[in-house]
Structure formats: C-alpha cells, structure tokens
Design a protein around this nucleic acid. Structure first.
Length: 487
RNA sequence: CGGGGUAUAGCGCAGUCUGGUCAGCGCGCCUGCUUUGGGAGCAGGAGGUCCCCGGUUCGAAUCCGGGUACCCCGACCA
C-alpha cells in the first residue's frame, strides 16, 4: 500500500524538479495530450473547460469596456508582414508559411498568422475615413502559430489560442488610455479576481517591447519556482502601423491625420500560469471562479440498500447546489472513495463533498477543502450556502497565498553581485527590484550573465526614492526595474 | 537552432552492450466474486508494425545509415 502511494505521487512529490512536476500535472490532471505535430498540443476537455472559463471572464470584460468581437482570416499575405520593418524582423524567424494551395504553387506565399496587426491594419485603413469612425474597438478570439524553438505545454506551443484586441484612435492620449485600460480593467482585474493570481503591472523595456510597438505594458506573475510568466500584454502601437498600412482619417478641422492604434493579447498560457502558481505536490488547485467543477460529490456506500439511500440524498444535494449556481459533479465510478479523493485533488477541484450512510442518517454531509484539506460536517439544509461561502474563501485564500509567496520571493539589489547571487539561488529564486540606468547594454549584459531579464518597469515602486545607482554600471538611474528569469 | 537524453501494450519500465524460446514486468483495462469513510483483494482474460524509412545478416527490438517526435540545458519568443 505504502509503495503504491509512493509510486502514484512520485512525479508530483518532487516539486524541486519543477519542470518534471509541471509535465506530470498537465498529463495526470487530464488537461492536455501530445499531438503528432511538433510543438502542438491537444487540449483535453478538462483543460479546455478551464480555457472556456478564462474566455468567459476575459470576454465579459472586453465587452464591458466597449469592444466588439469579429474575426479575421488565418492567412496573411507575406507582403503585409513586410510593411512594418520592426514587426517583420521580430516575427520572420518564427513564421509558418504556406506556399502551395490546391496542389499549385501560390503566386504569393501566405503566412499563417503569428498575430494579426498587419492584416487588420490593412483592413482598418479602408474602414477608417472620418474621425466619426473612431474609435474602432474590436477583438478576436483566434489561434495563431509561431514556430518556437522550444515548446512547453500551455506555456509555449507552436499553435496557441488567444484573444487579440486591435483598436484605432483619434489621438495619442486616447490610444494610451486604451492600452492602460485593457491592462488594468481587463487583464489584471480578470487575473486577480478570477484566476487568483497577483499581478505585477508595468511597462516593458525597449528590448522587451512588442515588435513594432511604441510602448508595451504587461502583467507579470510569479510561478511556484520563482520564475516570471508574462501573462498578458497591451501595446500602444503609436502611429507605426497606421503609417505602414495608411490608416488615416479626416479630422474635424478638415485635415487628414494618421490614426493611433493599440493591440493586446492574452492566451492559453494563462492555463499554465494557473497550474504553476497554485499547484502543489498533490496536483492542481483550481480557483473556484474558473474551476470546471467546483464541488465534486463522492458518494460512499457498502450494500445495495445503502447505495440507493445515498443516491437519493446525493441527487437532492446536487439539485440544491446547482440551484445555488454551483458547478457540481457526482462521481459514481466503481472505485474506492480513497481513489476518488486523490483523483479529484489531483484535478484541483476546490471542494469535495462526501456523502455516506452515516451522513444520510444524520441528515448531513462532509465538506473538504482542496487547499487546506480542512474537513467539516454540514447539515443538509445548509450545504449550498456553506459551499458557496467556502468557495469564496478558497478563492481568496489562493490569492493570498500566491501574493504572500511573491512578496517573500521579491528582493532588492544594490549592485550586480547581489542581483547575480539572487539569480543563482535556485531554491529561493524570485523577482529582484533594482535601479537601472535605461541603457540596453546594461540590460543585455545582465541577461547574458544571469539569465535575468527586465520583466517590467513597475507602475508601483517599492521605493520612495526617485533615483539611484544602476545595478549594473553604477551610473545615475531613474528607472526602477524588476528583474527575473522568465518562461 | 547548438549541447545532452529518450522512443518496447493506455501509463511507467526491463530487455539492446554480447543478433537466435525475447515479446516481458508493474499499474491500468475487460469478466466474475468479495470489497468500498484516504489510491482494495483474489481468480481468469484482452491488448504490441519494439517510433518511421532504408541497409547488414540465414535471422534484427538488439548492429549500421537517414528521418521524426518528446524531455532537459542554452540562444529566440505570448
């Protein structure tokens, strides 16, 4: 028995080997499967249900902030990508290109979209005539393809699912406001409230910004191994794409003006984030608000009469919970309760409800939290209310735990030696805040020597000083930067 | 794309060095009985182009050549 248990959890127990643990969770929790195509994954129902929850949460916010959904084609003429110099340089190395269609060589190769700024820019140029047409606030849910050198399930796949928003504005201020609104009111709000992942918000350094953007902003999350995950980006594209695709409008003053555009995206990578932020040695821990199953009912019985008795009680409880808006599932598989307990913990279901003959007798049920494993006996009539309360508490507890972890693993460095030491301490890896002179050279050398990149120049600084010495060169610096190793 | 590792049943593996009763084990799966409040037991059973293509040989999971995919470490990126 002990041996079996050891064998069952062997891959998960060793969280020190985080990469191994991650792969094991993805597979054992039935989130995804491998595909025959390099770098592409099959998202299984349980993983896809989580993605659907993410889509719902983001889509709702995207629409609340005034955007509409539409859809552009998968293929983009190669010439479109070449119109914005920085953009093509950034994406050319990872393009998949179609050269044959219907058995015949195409006159112009078609890129499988790595992102849609170009084809959308081309189209927006026709849609925008007057300042009265602005702003254009559109979003699309799509798949994109980037031929990545190294892939990992959810975190980096050759094909991935995402939403990409593309907007056009009359003024620079309006475009900047849009960019920040998306970051704050859509991405961070969703990630923190629904995924229970605390986010660090900030601006990207020039090196790290989107290819073709004027300024990029991102939200960065700390994973369980202390590495950073860029979880959502919002770009102020300035007039770069408007110039490249000739998006102009006649303004109220009678002059033709170049428009200002933005783009922003969040992807299936968020699923990887949920796994790596909340998971533990028993597997996944899903935030209740996005968990495909919020309460799993494990019925317990010995004899047939008991089973019938329990079945009635389970059906009634299931109805109650469903009526309270809780996503519930009863597990009637022919397995022992112990097996099911472990199985659902592995899948990260926030609350387990045990119901056996003894409970039917006492008109109660047992509720067990996934996060703390705290167990309580609850009278039948109070189950739905208590479950709702617990789900809310778990949601908050997951966020609090993640925030506490990030705070514990966030350091400051005064000089390069301190920064390097932090990045070398694998067991306590995390974010390091430090002054940076703004020189890309310093940024590059830090990266070469420590693997750490500037995740962002955070909006909220943990120092009141406005100036310091660059962590690398020691020269006067005004930028407060967050360094980390990243996925 | 460089360096390292791996590919044998759904999963995890042994066998490969030294070619020939070598198609094996555990878990899982199916059937039956007994079980069921923290990963059940016994009995019987099903399941494999040994990743693919080519070569060497009387004979290849095993040796040689070439692919493909996955994992790890880098460089590149949501």
């Amino acid at each position: 028995m002990a041996e079996q248990e050891a064998r069952f959890v062997e891959d998960l127990a060793d969280m020190d080997d985080f990469a191994q643990w991650y792969h094991a969770v993805v597979r054992k929790a039935d989130m995804a499967d491998e595909s025959p195509v390099r770098g592409c994954m099959i998202i299984k129902p349980y993983g896809y249900a989580l993605w659907e929850a993410i889509q719902r949460g983001l889509d709702e916010r995207i629409k609340l902030t005034g955007h509409e959904n539409l859809y552009f084609p998968l293929f983009i003429p190669m010439s479109f990508l070449q119109k914005e110099a920085e953009h093509v340089e950034g994406f050319a190395p990872e393009l998949a290109v179609v050269t044959i269609g219907g058995g015949e060589e195409l006159t112009e190769p078609l890129a499988v979209r790595p992102t849609s700024e170009t084809i959308i820019g081309h189209t927006y140029a026709r849609w925008v005539q007057s300042y009265r047409d602005l702003p254009l606030l559109y979003n699309q849910w799509a798949n994109v393809v980037r031929w990545e050198k190294r892939t990992r399930p959810f975190l980096r796949t050759s094909e991935f699912l995402w939403q990409e928003g593309h907007t056009v504005h009359r003024t620079e201020e309006e475009a900047e406001a849009e960019t920040l609104k998306i970051l704050n009111e859509v991405y961070v709000d969703f990630a923190e409230k629904e995924l229970a992942i605390p986010m660090l918000k900030g601006r990207k350094s020039t090196t790290e910004k989107f290819a073709g953007a004027l300024r990029s902003y991102s939200m960065e999350a700390m994973m369980g191994d202390g590495k950073a995950l860029q979880a959502g980006t919002s770009h102020n594209l300035g007039q770069n794409f408007a110039k490249a695709f000739d998006i102009q409008f006649l303004d109220a003053d009678g002059t033709r003006k170049l428009a200002w555009t933005t783009s922003w995206g969040a992807s299936t990578r968020l699923i990887g984030g949920v796994i790596m932020v909340h998971g533990d040695e028993s597997g996944l821990k899903l935030p209740p608000r996005v968990a495909p199953i919020q309460v799993v009912i494990v019925p317990i019985w010995r004899k047939d009469e008991e089973r019938a008795l329990v079945a009635d009680a389970v059906a009634a409880v299931e109805r109650d919970l469903r009526a309270a808006g809780i996503r519930v599932k009863s597990d009637w598989r022919e397995q022992t309760p112990g097996f099911k307990f472990n199985d659902w913990e592995l899948r990260g279901v926030p609350l387990r409800l045990e119901l056996g003959p003894k409970d039917v007798q006492k008109d109660q049920a047992v509720l067990v939290r996934r996060d703390t494993r705290a167990k309580e006996f609850v009278p039948r009539g109070e189950l739905a209310a208590r479950a709702s309360t617990l789900l809310t508490e778990i949601q908050q507890a997951l966020f609090d735990a993640a925030l506490a972890f990030r705070q514990r693993r966030t350091y400051q460095a005064n000089d390069f030696a301190e920064l390097a030491a932090r990045m070398a301490d694998r067991a306590n890896l995390g974010f390091v805040e430090a002054w940076w002179c703004g020189d890309a050279q310093c940024e590059a050398e830090i990266k070469a020597r420590t693997q750490a990149t500037i995740r962002c120049l955070p909006f909220a600084r943990s120092t009141t000083a406005t100036e310091g010495a660059c962590v690398y060169c020691g020269k006067p610096a005004q930028e407060w930067a967050v360094f980390a190793k990243a996925y």
